[in-house]
């Protein structure tokens, strides 16, 4: 590996992070309204108001505020929520596992179903089965996940109530281990299905098209001529050669987990990062929004870096000696 290349990448990432943090600071300063007025009841006297402004550091010059903000943000100290008065980081961490579990499961399902189906169908291009699968996948892919989610809720939560319509667990939750697990899974099925139905399609189409392209290459014809089995030709030659872009795409899509959570969690009323962000925005809870933005930005940058790194590992042409 050439160290210089990766150091440069890291440098770009840090510069980007700095720019994002700065924008994140500016956005909330130029928005109309005084944050303090949101927290405070109008009945407070001007003296109390002034005291609170000092407490939040809002009486300091902008420059000082900026430096303080940078210092605290880098230490993952996002302050306290205006609404709950709890530290933002703690609230964020409490919700993160739910989000990761739900969207992580859906994401893995999307990639696995999409890629496997894509490979299988690429070998049957033009058959009735493949035409059908591609048509259905295109249709589902074009459906927004919130629409699919609402349909599912209506069908399997309301008309035919076999799944819960909200939340990540029953209230009160079961106490034993297996019932807890079962209860969690029971609550996850609808949201995961909604995300997967509208999400696997792009993986399917991407894989299918790339594998079909690879199957038309001379090296695949050579592999067949060598007397390799269909399986060997398909996996060792065709699929192996389209693996690099797919792996890269996996890493580049990871940050989408968090942003995608915004919609899904709102619809299924889940206790996760996405809904936290939506609620905070609606309630003008700036420290929370700022904290969420920072975490998302960090995730995007980290995944981009990782994608660069992994691409080098799976594609010998990029690998540097």
């Amino acid at each position: 590996m050439s160290g210089a290349y990766y150091w440069r990448r890291l440098g770009y990432a840090l510069i980007t992070l700095f720019v994002i943090m700065t924008l994140n600071f500016i956005i909330f300063r130029i928005m109309p309204g005084d944050p303090v007025s949101l927290v405070l009841s109008p009945e407070f006297t001007p003296e109390v108001r002034q005291m609170l402004r000092e407490m939040y550091g809002l009486d300091q010059p902008l420059w000082t505020q900026y430096l303080l903000y940078m210092k605290n943000t880098l230490a993952f100290d996002f302050g306290r929520s205006f609404v709950t008065r709890q530290p933002v980081l703690r609230e964020l961490l409490a919700r993160l596992p739910n989000t990761l579990m739900l969207l992580g499961t859906a994401f893995v399902l999307n990639v696995v179903v999409g890629v496997v189906l894509g490979i299988k169908m690429a070998t049957r291009q033009g058959s009735r089965l493949e035409t059908g699968v591609t048509g259905v996948s295109l249709f589902l892919n074009a459906m927004p996940s919130f629409f699919v989610g609402l349909l599912l809720l209506l069908t399997f939560g309301y008309y035919w109530p076999i799944f819960p319509i909200r939340g990540t667990m029953s209230v009160p939750p079961p106490t034993e281990f297996w019932p807890i697990i079962f209860d969690r899974i029971h609550h996850m099925i609808l949201p995961v299905t909604a995300v997967s139905l509208s999400g696997y399609g792009s993986w399917y189409l991407y894989t299918r098209n790339n594998v079909i392209g690879a199957l038309g290459q001379d090296y695949v014809l050579t592999a067949r001529a060598k007397g390799l089995t269909q399986r060997e030709v398909l996996y060792r030659h065709a699929f192996r050669s389209v693996l690099p872009p797919i792996v890269t795409l996996v890493f580049l899509s990871l940050p989408g987990l968090i942003t995608g959570a915004v919609i899904t969690e709102s619809i299924f009323s889940l206790y996760g990062v996405g809904r936290y962000l939506v609620d905070a925005t609606l309630q003008q809870d700036y420290p929370v929004v700022q904290g969420c933005f920072f975490v998302i930005a960090l995730a995007v940058l980290a995944c981009n870096l990782l994608a660069d790194l992994v691409y080098g590992l799976v594609d010998p042409r990029i690998r540097l000696r």
Partner: peptide, 22 residues
């Protein structure tokens, strides 16, 4: 038969080798 008795050197051997395998 394939390769054992009848082998082939393909047109444009530039692409006859898989780029991601040694």
């Amino acid at each position: 038969i394939r390769w054992k008795k009848l082998a082939m050197v393909f047109q444009g051997a530039m692409n006859a080798l898989n780029p991601v395998l040694t």
